[in-house]
Structures are given as C-alpha cells and as structure tokens.
Amino acid sequence: MLRFTVRRLLQAVPTLFVLSILVFAWLRMLPGGPATALLGDKATPERVAAMNAVLGLDDPIFVQYFRFLGRVLTGDFGSSLITGDPVMEEVSWAFPATLELSAAAMFLAVLFGIPMGYIAARFRGRFLDNATVVTTLVGVAVPVFFLGFLLKYIFTQEMSLLPPSGRQDVLIDATRITGIATLDGLLTGEFDATWDAMLHLILPSVALASIPFAVIVRITRASVLDVQGEDFVRTANSKGLTTQIVRKRHVLRNALLPVSTTIGLQTGLLMSGAVLTEKVFAWGGLGTLLEQAIQQRDYPRLQGLILLFATVFVLVNLLVDISYAIIDPRVRVR
C-alpha cells in the first residue's frame, strides 16, 4: 500500500512540474509581455522597461523560470492588480467560501444520487427507471449557470422565499473563525447566523449539485445492474440468504466501488461549476476571484488561481486513486 502511494505521488510530481512550465510560458505569451500584463495597458514605456528590470526579464529564460518556481513554491504568487493585496492572501480568504459551497453540493449529490440510482436499477425498465434516466440526461444538458438563474428567479423573484445572493445577510454580525459561515455560527453559538448562512447556501448548492448528482445516479444505476448479474449474487441467493442481506452486503457494497471513484472525480470537476455558480449568486469565493480576474485581466491573480486549481485537481485525483487502492486491493499491483 505504501509503495503504491509513493509511486502515485511520484507520478504527480512531473505533471505539476510541466504544468508550472506551461503557466510560466502562458504569462509570457500574453500580448505585450508580462510587464504590460502586470502594469496594465496604459503603462508608459519607461515603466514597462523598469518593470522588466525588476522582473529580471533580461536574464536567461531558464533563470527566470527557476526564480518563478522558487517564488511559487514558497507561496508567493505576486499581488493582485485590482486590490494590490498578495494573491495568496486573497485566495486563503476566499477559499472557505468555495469549500463550503462545494461540500454542500457534493453532500446533496451523494445523499440523493446513490439512493436514486439504486432505486432506478431495482426497477429497471419500469416507469421509475426511465424517469430517472431522462432526469439525469436533462440534468447534464442544462447549463449550471442557467439552472442557477432559474432557481434564483423562481425562489427569490417570484416567491421571495430565499435570499437571492451572497453568503450571509449584511445585517447579521457574524464572527469569522474558519470562514465557513455555517460552521462559524455553530462554533460561536450564533445560531441565527448559521440559519441565515444555510438559507443562503440552499440555492447555489442545489444548482452546483445538478451535474454530480446526475453522474452519480447514472454510475450507481449502471454499477448496481452490473453487480446484480454477477455469479456471487446468484450464489448468495441460492444459499438462502435473505434478499435484504444480499442487497446490502453483496450488491450495494460491490456496486459502490466505481461510485466512490466517480465521487472523487466529480469533486475535482466541481471547481468548474463553482466558478459559474459563484458568479450567479455573488458568492465571494474562489470563483468570484477568478471571474473578477478575467473581467479586469488581472494576470497575476489569474496565474495564481490556475496553478492553485490545477494543484488541487491533481491532488484530488491522487486521493481518489489512493482511496480506490484501499477499497480494491487489485488496483495496487497494476
């Protein structure tokens, strides 16, 4: 197990290394070069020249790259052009918001996805199954941000049931501890803050959950159908085990193997959806940072965020592989 983990960790290193080269090259490919990108379009030639000297752009390219790598490895991504704050600081401030939203979305997707997929497989070919399959196909076809709009339109504009945007009502004076609004309220005993944060969380997390939900339902369904036809299920049935035990111990447990991988992969993919969802609901997490950076062409922030997202994605995939090896020993030897 340890050997597998180490080997898999070592495989991630070159990926991240090449990625850092690409992101480094990316900033250099910008029209006008990095100095213009850093200073903005209206920079005078003198300032660009000064910036080039400061950035060390006169040095050989590999010297520049290793300097960049050294800074990145120590967590220095430069400062945002919009706010002037270090990118790392902005990111660590916004990260809990995205974490909260993604975790809530994944929770919903798993909570409803696995039972629905299982039920669909049990009633294969019947109305319930067909309805589920159609729902998941539509779920994937609906753009996440449009679903966000739709939910917002129905539940805030038409019915005024839920707050339209943001993470907490401005009138609530909540204490920030972890930055995860629902958790902070519990920690400090400000239950009104938790309640308010949860109300704000409902619509964005439902919107973000739509795609992982659809995928989890489909994988669970397919996987349960696969396992149901296996010999060991027939054996279990024929040796007289109750249907309940067969379903629980033999079918469901084996069927959940591929589902667990999917959940991991979808967690990584949630980041794409989070960018869109956060924009619809003005959530103020990493997605909002990214979106502002795009609008203002804030390249240092964009560079930092891209590297961060990619690193998180690689790490999540790594965790998925390792957890899969724990669940299924056959993977380790491959």
Binding site: T15, L22, R297, I306, A310, V314
Partner: peptide, 17 residues
C-alpha cells in the same frame, strides 16, 4: 497535463490569452 486542469479552467486560460 491537459486533463489535470478542470475543463472550464483550461478553456478560460486559453480564452483569456
């Protein structure tokens, strides 16, 4: 490496250039 970026982010980093 291309797969190591979330798909939308890959598109964003190209479109931003």
């Amino acid at each position: 490496i291309m797969l190591s970026l979330p798909s939308l982010l890959l598109a964003i980093s190209i479109a931003a250039l």
